[in-house]
Amino acid sequence: MKIPISHRSTQRQQRLFFLGMLVLFIPCLFYLDLSYGQFASGLERIPDMARQMMHLSFEELPKMLRELLTSIIIAFLCVVLSVLISLLLAFVVARATTPNRYVSAALRAMIVIIRTIPTTIWVLLAVASMGFGPMAGVVGLLLPTIAFLIRVFSDQIDEAGRDTAEAIRSVGGTWWHVVCNGLLPTLLTGFLALIAFKFEITVAETVILGIVGAGGIGVLLQGYISFYEFAPLMLGMLLVFITLFLLEMGTNLIRTKLAGKGSK
């Protein structure tokens, strides 16, 4: 005899989930009408492309490194400026410290809208209004970065700062006292971890910004792709990979270090 051990209704719902996936999947596949011929002819081109990619040439390396640095700098400037602005606004948005509830609600709604639009679209808009170049990259990234930072900062303020804010207010402290003396010093470590995390994401984003025309290594990569120069493209992709990988490790290190400090 078999004894059922799993929870019946959970199991039924999970089956329903998979069934739903299948039911949606099949008509969508037919709707898209993907051609197998296109797929096969694309696959045939892979070995040739791979062969070209294997001829790594280091001719373009200095140029690439320069552009890579530009990408990182765009991300850096953008994060620094966003931190300055969002630190101020986060205290206005956070429910625990907001001076005015309606301002907070309005800003919150704006943040939702800004965050919903993908970053790449923002940069595209900035490029359309300001022309090509790193400046458009910084401006385009600024809004989504600020929105993200305000969101996470204000979440943290709400989570940790309610009691502190109330305590300072009850002894007659002003808004500036609450923010500068009460909350900023305690929350700074947590903020630093978030900033490091955002910096990592922003660098990944600036790399692709070139594809929509906002400076940095993406411009070079896009050029290689459109002129079928796969050898330097491979080098560029490796460079990007190494940079992002090192950054990921670096931010992980910062996070564990900060977490260790916080618990002490």
Binding site: L34, Q38, I225, S226, F241
Partner: peptide
């Protein structure tokens, strides 16, 4: 997997557009 993830998505997409031609196939 780490390589797949760390090379930006848009780059994969434009590479695949070169390979498979314009259309929904490279996007998918």
């Amino acid at each position: 997997v780490s390589f797949l993830r760390n090379v930006p998505f848009l780059l994969w997409a434009s590479l695949l557009v070169v390979l498979f031609g314009v259309g929904s196939l490279p996007g998918i």
